[in-house]
């Protein structure tokens, strides 16, 4: 079971905290969670907190790309934060780190320039073998 918690830590920003695996089973609920966050406050920055995500697959990636497109179409943006090594590896293998650069923390993702995206070689989060 994968859970989503949406919060609004500051005006113009939303954080979706995900707990559980992002795969073909959970992708639909994940898409709906991102859609809810974008619809409630169009034009805001949405940060997806992946600290509670042990693994992601191509279906989870598809949901993230769909969310990024929806956020940008509404005049906002979507960022990902606190990804572990498995998630970062999947982003790199699919080249999607070019459009979804992982930020080291939610605070960095919410900021404008400080604490930029995680460089591939500096990613240190422990990855799950699953």
């Amino acid at each position: 079971m994968t859970d989503y918690t949406i919060s609004h830590p500051s005006p113009g920003a939303a954080v979706i905290a995900v707990t559980g695996t992002l795969n073909v089973v959970s992708a639909r609920g994940f898409r709906e969670a991102i859609g809810d966050a974008v619809d409630r406050a169009p034009g805001q920055r949405v940060v997806v907190d992946l600290a509670g995500v042990p693994t992601i697959d191509s279906s989870g990636l598809g949901a993230l790309i769909g969310g990024l497109k929806a956020a940008r179409a509404a005049g906002g943006d979507l960022r990902i934060a606190a990804a572990n090594q498995q998630v970062i590896t999947v982003l790199e293998l699919t080249n999607l780190n070019r459009v979804l650069q992982p930020y080291p923390s939610v605070a960095d993702g919410l900021g404008d320039a400080a604490g930029g995206p995680v460089a591939a070689e500096s990613a240190t989060a422990a990855g799950s073998a699953r």
């Binding site: 697959d57 191509s58 279906s59 598809g62 790309i65 769909g66 497109k69 699919t94 080249n95 070019r98």
Partner: peptide, 14 residues
């Protein structure tokens, strides 16, 4: 994997 905006079809390539 060239189409970075595509939402499906990456699984086997990955």
């Amino acid at each position: 994997l060239d189409d970075l905006g595509c939402e499906h079809g990456r699984g086997l390539a990955l």
